[in-house]
């Protein structure tokens, strides 16, 4: 009886904590109404099979490129990623689940691509890689692959919070000539059909992705620019603060979902 009362008290406390703590963020609009689902859930069986088979998944070629680049010296410092970080399978495990992350020195969040470039310019004394370049996508895919299957885990960093909030505002804001917000489609109309294709919940679970429409690997920033162009809004420049904020919000929104990099998408 006493044990039961204690258990009840614990349950009450847990309920209180769960309902009190994340309320400010978790019950606001911008949250998918039902359970979270990866875009994978809406894919044809054939497309799923391509993603699931490491030998058939074209994104794995980018991962392999990244593996080679990881070990290759770059820049005037004569350092390879591996010289500082060692075996990526150990040192990079889980890292991609925590990006974008706040960079104290720059005073702003960096996404994984920007973090890799910061390492290049600051540690390797090498020129930054261009956004969407083959090498930047490859290194990003290789690092993210080391978190394959791990849950997305945005850092509980108070400095990141305002950026996540700004990203959420961007997600909810109607924009473009067609005057649509991200939320209108990806919260409200997920599972319905746009031009015959199901709208997904918009969780960035597998970037960089291999997109059949692109016939190439691409970043989340590229995918966001596609949606912006779709509503006839001015796409954010690659790596712009607003776009990284949006990325931070989307990763927060997808928290707990397993990373699928490199995902394959139609």
């Amino acid at each position: 009886m006493k044990a039961r009362a204690a258990a009840l008290a614990r349950l009450a406390l847990a309920t209180l904590l769960v309902t009190a703590l994340p309320r400010a963020v978790s019950q606001a609009p911008g949250e998918p109404p039902a359970g979270k689902q990866s875009g994978y859930a809406w894919m044809a069986r054939e497309t799923r099979a391509i993603q699931d088979d490491a030998l058939a998944n074209p994104g794995m070629l980018s991962v392999l490129d990244g593996e080679a680049l990881w070990a290759r010296k770059a820049g005037t410092a004569g350092l390879a990623c591996a010289d500082c970080h060692g075996d990526a399978r150990l040192s990079m495990k889980g890292v991609a689940t925590r990006f974008p992350a706040f960079d104290a020195r720059l005073g702003r969040p960096l996404n994984l691509e920007q973090r890799i470039n910061a390492c290049r310019t600051e540690r390797q004394a090498a020129p930054a890689l261009r956004y969407e370049s083959r090498d930047l996508l490859a290194l990003t895919a290789y690092v993210a692959r080391q978190s394959h299957g791990l849950p997305i885990a945005p850092p509980a960093d108070a400095r990141l919070r305002p950026h996540v909030e700004a990203g959420r505002a961007e997600y909810l804001r109607r924009q473009g000539q067609l005057n649509l917000s991200c939320a209108q489609c990806h919260d409200g109309l997920a599972d319905r059909k746009l031009v015959g294709n199901p709208i997904t919940q918009g969780h960035p679970t597998g970037y960089p992705i291999y997109r059949l429409e692109w016939q190439a690997v691409g970043s989340l920033q590229r995918r966001l620019r596609n949606c912006m162009a779709g509503v006839r809004a001015e796409p954010h420049p690659y790596g712009a603060a607003e776009a990284v904020n949006l990325e931070a919000y989307l990763m927060w929104r997808a928290r707990g979902m397993p990373l699928e990099t490199p995902a394959v998408r139609p």
Binding site: R173, R174, Q175, G176, Q177, N179, L180, L189, E234
Partner: peptide
């Protein structure tokens, strides 16, 4: 969801071409 096909005001971040 229906865009205002004839409205050009009170819109945000419209792409330059439009």
């Amino acid at each position: 969801l229906m865009p205002s096909y004839y409205r050009t005001t009170d819109l945000t971040r419209v792409a330059a071409a439009f």
